[in-house]
Design a binder for these strands. Structure first.
Length: 294
DNA sequence: TACCAGGTTAGCG
DNA sequence: CGCTAACATGGT
């Protein structure tokens, strides 16, 4: 059970952290944050807890208002939103790289979320050959079928909203039969997911250990690709978004299109250094949501 | 109604 | 190696 207060949210000055919620939640890295036009608020689920967040500008300062408690903000959301790293300080895009500079200007404010590795793995297995609306709806069906029902109460003691579910654990999915995954819209990915669940549940692959800083991104990608249904693109996305290996640079159809169009089919990822993944997200956001190119 | 989507695999030459 | 058909399904 969880209590929230929508009327008197926690208010944090985030001016110095350079975060933009719309870009961060809409840049394609996450699938369970949804925007409510009426309240100008994002609702998301992080580690089986529901949070509402919105931005506010006052007197030239930027604030975040959230239903999280002070300790939840400090212990969970501050880290989840990766506010302790200001990318600008470490990013060093060559001046000659016009496209990347433009993408950075468009994408500035994107933060690479510290999402749960397991949820990220399954989400990006689902993502292959799917569009983003389909990915989101499929994940919601999976959560509703096998995730923990989250009970949230507003300041009046009324349950709010009616139904929300956490992401199902690896052990829960590992205990299922393939037929239990029918009718969720997973398509041929159902066996990939069941197989990944068993591998994680049996500790054949240990996602938590892969998050350790001693494990470099390429090593993590190599491990992830031992899973059936996890190729180079999905593995790079899991490493970047789930394991927080910020130098990983996933190449999907959109990025490949950019490479072919603006880099003559050859891009120098190393030139983006330790934060290449951030540049990748700038590019993805720029080309897809900011009509960069067309 | 067709076409397509933040790819991967297996099976070919 | 490199190339490519097949893959399930819902969103648009």
């Amino acid at each position: 059970m969880q209590g929230i207060n929508l009327k008197n949210p926690l208010k944090i000055d985030v001016t110095d952290y350079n975060i933009n919620l719309e870009k961060t939640f809409n840049c394609g890295q996450c699938f369970r944050w949804n925007y409510d036009n009426q309240t100008n608020t994002w609702r998301g689920i992080v580690r089986n807890k529901v949070y509402w967040i919105r931005e506010k500008e006052e007197n030239g300062r930027k604030f975040i208002e959230t239903t999280a408690s002070k300790s939840e903000w400090n212990k969970i959301l501050f880290t989840y939103l990766d506010l302790d790293t200001v990318y600008e300080d470490e990013l060093d895009i060559p001046n000659s790289d016009k496209f990347a500079i433009n993408a950075q200007n468009a994408g500035r404010g994107i933060k690479i979320l510290r999402q749960e590795p397991w949820e990220t793995l399954i989400s990006f297995i689902i993502s292959q050959r799917n569009n983003i609306p389909k990915i989101k709806s499929t994940i919601e069906r999976l959560c509703k079928a096998y995730g923990k029902k989250l009970e949230v109460y507003n300041e009046n003691g009324k349950q709010y909203p009616s139904e929300l579910y956490g992401f199902p654990s690896a052990s829960v999915l590992a205990s299922l039969d393939i037929s239990d995954l029918e009718n969720l819209g997973l398509g041929y990915r159902d066996e990939y997911i069941l197989n990944a669940a068993k591998a994680v549940d049996n500790d054949i692959i240990n996602l938590d250990e892969l998050t350790f800083s001693q494990v470099n991104g390429n090593k993590a990608v190599e491990q992830l690709m031992t899973l059936k249904g996890v190729g180079p693109k999905v593995a790079n996305c899991v490493a970047l978004f789930g394991l927080h290996k910020l130098d990983m640079f996933p190449i999907d159809v959109w990025i490949q299109r950019i490479i072919d169009t603006y880099y003559n089919g050859n891009i120098n990822i190393e030139s983006y250094g330790k934060l290449a993944g951030v540049v990748q997200q700038y590019m993805f956001y720029y080309i897809k949501f900011n009509s960069g190119g067309n």
